[in-house]
């Protein structure tokens, strides 16, 4: 890609560069308008709302309340339980997604028959609307008409059980997110130079040592990138869980996103919900920052 890097001519006249600059602004403008209007603007507005008592109703005089929402949040038991569930959900789903996807990617990278069947199947969940995935698994988990109780010989209402609902939706989360991770890891595997393997083959290294000493270190940047992305996506998950459980039973699957949504659009507490959103952003940034910083330090 280096060949296409733009090098301004060494003695480009000033008029030339200002013309270029005008041209660039002109080209960027159509994309910048909606982004500023519907994305950057609302984001800043939202951060501001977190420090007000804004209500999601037409007749309400919004006033600045400082850190009131923040202290209310810290005293709110629902906040702690929701973020705890969010942490369990996003860490477990990300870890399981990664392990399952790594296994599948390694298999798909081998010269196995029926590989193409698995390859197509592995992408299907990616192609499905999250709402449809949720509905489909609802049919699987359905206490009467579902297949799972029949297969296991159990009589459980999976999605309404206090201790089983969270594990049940975690399985769905893994099923949903595995494809992206698999595709990315597979691409990474295929980019590992073959010569590296040939070199250790001479040394008589076994399969396990080849994996541990070459494949994993070579994959490392890809692994760090995709697990970070998966974590962010999982932490911000909404549609899937909304369809499956609506956060129930008794809030056992109420991820932070669902909690904030309820506060904003059911109880109309726009200010408080914005504070929850801000807290989510901070958690994500802190976890990502820590993770990437550690990875970078170890890589050196």
């Amino acid at each position: 890609m280096t060949a296409t890097v733009t090098q301004p001519a060494p003695r480009a006249s000033r008029r030339e560069t200002s013309r270029q600059r005008r041209e660039m602004w002109l080209l960027m403008l159509p994309a910048m308008v909606p982004v500023l209007l519907f994305s950057v603007g609302p984001l800043l507005y939202g951060i501001g709302l977190a420090f007000t008592d804004a209500r999601n109703t037409r007749v309400h005089q919004t006033s600045f309340v400082g850190l009131e929402n923040f202290t209310r949040m810290l005293a709110d038991e629902q906040f702690w339980s929701s973020f705890q569930i969010g942490a369990i959900w996003s860490v477990t789903v990300t870890a399981l997604q990664f392990l399952a996807a790594l296994g599948l990617a390694l298999l798909l990278n081998m010269n196995l028959r029926f590989r193409s069947v698995a390859r197509v199947l592995a992408v299907v969940p990616w192609a499905m609307p999250p709402v449809v995935i949720g509905l489909m698994w609802k049919l699987v988990y359905h206490p009467d008409a579902g297949i799972l109780n029949d297969l296991l010989g159990t009589d459980v209402n999976w999605l309404a059980d206090f201790s089983l609902a969270l594990p049940a939706i975690i399985v769905v989360g893994v099923w949903t997110g595995m494809p992206q991770t698999t595709v990315v890891l597979l691409a990474g595997l295929q980019n590992v130079p073959k010569e590296l393997y040939e070199a250790v083959e001479v040394d008589g290294a076994g399969r396990w040592r080849r994996f541990w000493n070459i494949t994993l270190p070579q994959l490392r940047p890809v692994i760090v990138a995709i697990t970070s992305l998966d974590f962010v996506w999982n932490f911000n998950q909404f549609g899937l869980v909304y369809v499956l459980t609506q956060g129930g039973p008794g809030g056992r699957t109420r991820l932070p996103m669902l909690f904030a949504y309820e506060e904003a659009f059911r109880y109309r507490a726009a200010g408080y919900a914005s504070m929850l959103g801000l807290a989510m952003a901070i958690v994500v940034l802190a976890v990502l920052g820590l993770y990437l910083w550690r990875q970078m330090r170890e890589a050196r």
Partner: peptide, 8 residues
């Protein structure tokens, strides 16, 4: 998180 943008 989209929720931070969706409200405003």
């Amino acid at each position: 998180p989209f929720i931070l943008i969706v409200i405003p």
